[in-house]
């Protein structure tokens, strides 16, 4: 390293430096993410399908009208609420419990954490395929286990994915299974940051476990909890791989969420116009969440740690 004078013209040089460093990422994301997405939004107002590609017309709000008459889409709305709500709730509660159990060091904790991380590493697509088989009514192991436990009779195995009563709950269970590790790891990482001094001080004051939990643990990791939860909502809302691989909406469109219905409109029906209309609706919903998200991040910065 030779030493050289460093009093360059700071102002302009620095601006140029900043622009140069940001440019590659900005241009690529603008070209391959924003441009197609904006074009996608315009398709929501066109009769853009695989079969009309050469003769695309503006059709106003017709795609939206058609969607709100589509039985599967209408069923997908309450499904989406259940999919997001139940998945999040159980992932959070189970994940939090496990993270608390993992807070104190014990022999083999690292190995345990590594092992329960497995689902996080694989795609929703593969998880869908695997659960499709575990749930299978005629030769899946879950039915066999339930039969062995005496909960189900061999003559009447449960059609986890074919019975309308069980289909959506089964899909959600698979998603809960998929998402727990994320919460365990995130909350555990946050818990490591809570100072032991606080707990010791509380011990001296004779605080109970419950008091310590609500007065120390929760407030200390609140910002992480808020962020993780909101991010997770967005993520669960936008994910469709698992449903695509597990049921693709069956039986009779009963397990579609809004997002998986959108994917279905693209992959099976080639109706990009209607799919885009669903996408526009999704963005509107996401924007609401984004507002929360921004509020939460601002809150964290002010909290400043």
């Amino acid at each position: 390293m030779k030493s050289q004078p460093i009093n360059k013209k700071k102002g302009l040089g620095q601006t140029r430096f900043i622009i140069l460093m940001l440019m590659p990422g900005f241009l690529l994301v603008a070209l391959f993410t924003y441009f197609p997405a904006i074009k996608g939004v315009t398709m929501a107002f066109q009769n853009y399908t695989l079969y009309t590609m050469r003769n695309v017309k503006w059709i106003g709000l017709k795609n939206f009208q058609a969607i709100f008459k589509n039985r599967e889409f209408l069923m997908a709305i309450p499904n989406t609420l259940r999919w997001v709500g139940f998945s999040l709730f159980f992932q959070f509660v189970i994940g939090f419990t496990l993270a608390l159990f993992l807070k104190a060091k014990f022999h083999g904790r690292g190995l345990y954490q590594g092992s329960i991380c497995f689902p996080w590493a694989i795609s929703g697509f593969l998880i869908g395929i695997t659960f499709k088989w575990i749930y299978n009514g005629s030769y899946g192991p879950l039915n066999d286990i339930l039969i062995r436990l005496g909960l189900v009779t061999r003559a009447n195995p449960v059609g986890f994915l074919s019975d309308p009563k069980f289909a959506m709950p089964s899909v959600i269970v698979a998603n809960v299974w998929y998402g727990i590790p994320f919460f365990v790891i995130m909350i555990q990482a946050a818990l490591q940051g809570v100072s032991e001094d606080l707990y010791e001080a509380a011990d001296i004051d004779g605080a109970s476990v419950v008091q310590k939990f609500f007065n120390i643990t929760i407030p200390s990791i609140r910002s992480v909890l808020i962020l993780t939860t909101l991010l997770r909502v967005i993520w669960i809302f936008n994910s469709a791989e698992l449903i695509y691989a597990l049921t693709d909406g069956n039986p009779a469109g009963r397990t579609h969420t809004v997002t998986s219905k959108m994917l279905n409109l693209i992959m099976s029906e080639g109706d990009y116009g209607k799919a885009s209309a669903v996408g526009v609706i999704i963005i509107a919903v996401m924007a609401t969440f984004a507002a929360f998200y921004i509020a939460a991040t601002k809150f964290e910065q002010e909290d400043g740690d």
């Binding site: 197609p36 939004v41 967005i234 936008n238 799919a275």
Partner: peptide, 26 residues
């Protein structure tokens, strides 16, 4: 620098756009 928070937003928003929206155009 000016526009720093806009750049951050520019990246954060991508995480909220449903990926399938741009699929046909892409």
């Amino acid at each position: 620098f000016k526009g720093k928070s806009k750049i951050l937003m520019f990246y954060l928003i991508t995480q909220m756009i449903p990926g399938f929206l741009g699929m046909a155009a892409l």
